[in-house]
Design a protein around this nucleic acid. Structure first.
Lengths: 249, 249
DNA sequence: TAAATTTGTCTATTGATATAGACAACTATA
DNA sequence: TATAGTTGTCTATATCAATAGACAAATTTA
């Protein structure tokens, strides 16, 4: 955002409090690289002037970001960027969790939170090419990198074809490895629909977000190389920690 | 979102007012197809109960959406969806504006808002493979569909190679047609980085949004079939009106 | 026509948000 | 060791957001 002016004005009586808007701006600034690692933010009075608000309002914004682990404030010294760069999450024909984040983080893994068998809803059935109401297995997972949640996904699989995939997932911690047990060595992403919205209560808990945060939502279908649908998924990413990099589709 | 519970609870003292959160939910519901065209929303008391808030809070949310042109309230009858489905904006190797939206809208076009010559910033230079500070032409455009803004983009081109592309764009109203004048019959999308954030003051004005809205941001590079970069762009989409569909090829 | 349903308006009260000013506490530096 | 610069805490006040209740106005249905 280096070309655009740092938005001069902030919207009042908008439904979004000023401190949250300012916190968003600061996050954007950091993500845009306006501050070096461990650099000091401008002093509170300067920020207050820049955004045209009271110093206390800036303090509210900063304290939210401190709580979030993005900033560290030291009395007498200043407020410093703890530099949490946004992860660049690749999406392409062969989207995989751990391979995609290689090099960006030292540690990453998927946790299986829950699994269940349920009748397929309309859109799941459509995505998987099953009859509505057919039994599907749902896996609820969370992706973590360096101890911070970076994704929260629900994946649906044909229950008749993938009996026990929940246990495989629990053991291996990998969708790819689990599918391999069913003879699927390769799969491709057929389609991805992407949207964004405010985090709801579930997102806040799942992704360890502060209220008012934004989540990126992808709805995708994975297929075998010959076009047979095997997985329907809805994933949510915290927009403040993740960007999606669309590569060679 | 048919599988997920209609968010049980709403976040309080979050920096985002309850009425805005509820307005967001209603928009999601509509986009998810929970209401048919011209269908009536549940009555205010029912919505209040569902979201666990006072009826007046629901009314604030509804009045914001009425102002936005999404709903129409009629005393004694109910509140009706004016059905503005989200456009599905395709992104793939051959992303074009007007072809992509075919069939979804009756009318669509790009307006050239401004153009200028400027030295390339760091990221523009990198994207176009030029030296930092090299002269580039910037085109500011807005995409409209059925009279509503659906995108707002800045595109940068090598000023030495594309002399007069601003005039071509003004005449043709099409990037593709303008590039054709420079002998470029085909181009591909090399990379796209996607993020989301709250709309800033400029977004609100450019995209005719209400404060608190969310914008999807893509930063992309277009190249000729032999890999020569020709365009660097940053586009912003109103998340409430647009979803991005990532298509293979 | 009467009753039920639904949106619209009004008053009142409480808590969160934002502004304002003053001063304490801590740090770096001249 | 002063001094300037910075974050932390406190009090006070005004405005916005949310709740609560009552009733009016319009529409649909029995």
């Amino acid at each position: 955002m280096s070309e655009r002016q740092q938005a001069d004005s902030i919207e009042r009586r908008s439904g979004v409090s000023l401190w949250r808007q300012i916190a968003d701006r600061i996050l954007q600034s950091i993500a845009a690289g306006d501050f070096a690692e461990n650099a000091a933010l401008p002093p509170e009075v300067a920020l207050a002037e820049r955004y045209g608000v009271n110093r206390h309002t800036v303090r509210s914004a900063i304290s939210a970001l401190v709580q979030e682990g993005v900033l560290r404030a030291e009395q007498g010294r200043g407020t410093f960027v703890l530099s949490r760069k946004r992860l660049s999450y690749p999406i392409g024909a062969r989207t995989r969790f751990s391979t995609g984040l290689q090099g960006q983080t030292s540690e990453r893994h998927i946790v299986l939170l829950a699994s269940s068998v349920e009748p397929a809803s309309q859109r799941v059935a459509e995505g998987l090419g099953l009859a509505r109401g057919a039994e599907v297995i749902r896996l609820e997972t969370r992706g973590e990198a360096d101890g911070r949640p970076v994704s929260r996904a629900a994946g649906w699989f044909d229950a008749r074809r993938f009996v026990g995939i929940d246990k495989a997932m629990a053991q291996t911690g990998s969708i790819t490895a689990s599918l391999a047990r069913f003879g699927i060595d390769d799969y491709l992403r057929q389609s991805t629909v992407l949207s964004a919205r405010h985090a709801d209560a579930a997102d806040l808990a799942d992704l360890d977000l502060q209220p008012g945060a934004i989540v990126l939502v992808t709805v995708a279908v994975n297929v075998t190389p010959d076009g047979q649908p095997i997985q329907f998924s809805e994933s949510r990413f915290p927009a403040e920690r993740v960007e999606l990099k669309l590569s060679a589709l």
